[in-house]
Amino acid sequence: MSKSKPLLSSTLGKKLIMSLTGIFLCLFLVVHLIGNLQLFKDDAGYAFNTYAHFMTNFTPIKIVSILLYLTFVLHAVYALVITRKNKAARPIGYNQSSGNANSKWNSRNMGVLGTIILIFLVTHMQNFWWKYHNDQVPYVQYEKNLDTQEVTSQALSSDEFTNYLVTYKTAENGDAIEVIKSQDLYQQVEYAFENIGLVLLYVIAMAALSFHLIHGFQSAFQTLGFKHRRYIGTIRFLGIWVFGVIIPIAFAAIPVYIYLVR
C-alpha cells in the first residue's frame, strides 16, 4: 500500500491554488471598482477621501487586505512554479507551430499578460498606496453642512494637518457643520493622471487585464471542475462581458476621464 502524493505537490493541486486565488482577485476587482467610481464624483473628493480613510483603518478590511496581498503573491509565485514545470515538459520545441489553429492567443500567453499587470501593479502601488501610507499626498479640509448637505473644501498645508480628524461646530445661522481634516488622495489621483504616459500605461494594463480575465475567469471554474450546461453560460457571460469587458473598461475610464476632463 502506498499513499497518494499530497494535493499541493500535484499539477492539479497547483492549478487549484491558481484558480482559487484568481477568483478571489476577481472579487477584489469588483470591490475596488465600486470604491473607485467615487473618483468620478465632482465633490472635491469628499466621498472618495472619507472612503479611502475607512478602507485603510477599519480592522476587518485591514485583515482582508493583508489576505489580498498574500493572494497576489501566491498567484504570481505559483504561476512561476507552474510555468517552469511546463517549460521542462517540452525541452525541445517545434520548428513550426500554428497555435492559432487550435487555441486563442490570450489563453497561451497568460504569463505575458500577467507580467504586464504586475508591472502596472508596482507603479500603481507606488503612486497611490505607498504615497498614501507614507504621508506624501496633499491635505484637505472639508466643511459639510449637515442640514443642507453642502460641502466646501480647502487645501491644508502640512503644518495644519496632524492626522485624520472629524470635528463638529455650529455655524452662525445655527446649522451643524462637520469638519473633516484628511489626506487628499483624490487630489493625488488628479496630479498623477496629468501625466499622459501614466494614463497610457493604465489603459494598456487594463487591456492586458481584459484578455487575462476573458480566459482566466472561465479557466478557473474549469480547473475547479465546475462545468455543467446549467451554469456554463452564466460563467461564460461573467468571464467575457463582466470581468473581460465592463470592469477593465470602467477602470481604464478613470485615468482617461481625469486626463481629458479635469
Partner: peptide, 30 residues
C-alpha cells in the same frame, strides 16, 4: 505539464474527446 485550459488538445484530438473530461477529472481528484 499542467493544464492551462487553452483547448488546443480538444481542437486537435482526432476522435473529439472534450474538455469536459478534464473538468470531471479535476472534480474527481479534488
Amino acid at each position: 505539464g499542467s493544464c492551462t485550459n487553452t483547448g488546443a488538445c480538444e481542437a486537435e484530438c482526432p476522435v473529439g474527446i472534450k474538455l469536459d473530461n478534464i473538468a470531471l477529472m479535476n472534480k474527481e481528484y479534488f
